[in-house]
Write a protein that binds this DNA or RNA. Structure first.
Lengths: 224, 224
DNA sequence: ACCTGAACACCGTTCAAGT
DNA sequence: ACCTGAACACCGTTCAAGT
């Protein structure tokens, strides 16, 4: 026989049960996210993945929301630096577009980022980059500070909108139908603008949104 | 004895079990929302409230997301018309602020509205109002059409941000700490702007955001 | 301190069966 | 057609107990 002597072994044949750490938990979470989406990134599922019980995770992670925020910061690290070249405005748009593109791949994560603001190192780098570009463009610092929030909110919210709880498509059809069905009598502006209201790819709308935002941030003084 | 004769009656003493209708379900949902928040507006809880089983609700409502959207449209009906007076810009800000104020009372609803766009009658009225005001201000129709989305997104996302999964406060403290701890060396812009980055009441930021948005929408041409 | 089994208190959704 | 009991396949979080 080739088998080792009949000693008892753990139920699951794993190389070695790695010690539980915050990094290990976040890494497992990222893996599950990539493979099956955020809906499966649950305490119970992660515990199973790490060969322990759900209660053990609470030693390292306050709750599910905090876990999701940590996952986002982790993914933010994969976005990478934006290549130089072009005006500050173009580079600003490029940084924001890269960030949004990452979120588009994980819309449920965007959704959760709206509530549980990330505060990890990669997020800080992103903010620093945005502030630097706005500064280069001569945007008054106070406006830049508030503007960064507005820009990131637009990016995050736009990505979050594409988080289908499964519905998204029928949902959009319902909106389109409602707008087209709007009466000329009671809703003249909608009736006249049904086309533009529904036109544009998400990409085109996103870019236009960034441009409008930047333009507004430049010109709008902060109170006091 | 004052009691009626000992005839069998239904377990729960209810006047009459009302027929199940979509309106009845939505009304019950609004009641539960007001009393206990959106987290309790679940199929199972509503079924209990309506003295039936959860499966019965699926005859009238496709899923939980659709139910939440219907609830939002219902609440939108309570916002009421905005009083006249002031410039188109002031009135526009007032309509948006009233909408956001409603959402601030139900941040979890705002969160869900970001994904499951409402398309009910009250939402349509809101869009019509916004388009009318932008038109009055001479904003080119195509820009107004896309701009409405941007304005409502800002309102909704800002309200959603205040949806605490319980965390919100510690969460904000974490962001504040991270920003204050940013090194002068690696994050000079953050270090220099820690004050402005964290300043302003939600109300002040919201209003400034609307102003910046309106300014940008006015000046930014839609592609093609 | 760190870790965990077990429990508490829930979920959404589907389906076969009844009226 | 409308309605439903029961089941399937899960959740987050806490707590008392162990090492």
């Amino acid at each position: 026989m080739t088998g080792r002597p009949d000693t008892p072994r753990s139920r699951r044949e794993r190389p070695a049960k790695p010690a539980l750490t915050r990094e290990g938990i976040v890494a497992a979470a990222v893996a599950v996210l990539r493979a099956e989406g955020l809906r499966k990134v649950t305490m119970r599922r992660l515990a199973e993945e790490l060969d322990t019980g759900p209660a053990s995770l609470y030693v390292y992670v306050r709750n599910t929301a905090e876990l999701h925020a940590a996952v986002l910061d982790e993914l933010l690290g994969t976005v990478g630096p934006t290549p130089a070249g072009g005006s500050w405005r173009e580079r600003l748009e490029r940084v924001l577009t890269a960030y949004t593109a990452m979120l588009f791949d994980h819309p449920e994560l965007a959704r959760s980022a709206l509530t549980a603001r990330p505060s990890g190192p990669h997020y800080l780098n992103l903010i620093e980059n945005l502030l630097a570009l706005l500064d280069e463009g001569g945007v008054p610092p106070a406006q830049a500070a508030w503007g960064v929030d507005l820009l990131l909110q637009h990016a995050t919210a736009t990505a979050a909108e594409h988080a289908g709880d499964g519905a998204s498509k029928e949902d959009w059809d319902a909106v389109a139908a409602a707008l087209h069905a709007a009466s000329e009598r009671t809703h003249p502006h909608i009736a006249g603008l049904a086309g533009p209201l529904l036109s544009g790819t998400p990409q085109a709308r996103l870019t236009w949104g960034f441009q409008a935002l930047i333009s507004g941030i430049e010109r709008t003084a902060v109170p006091e």
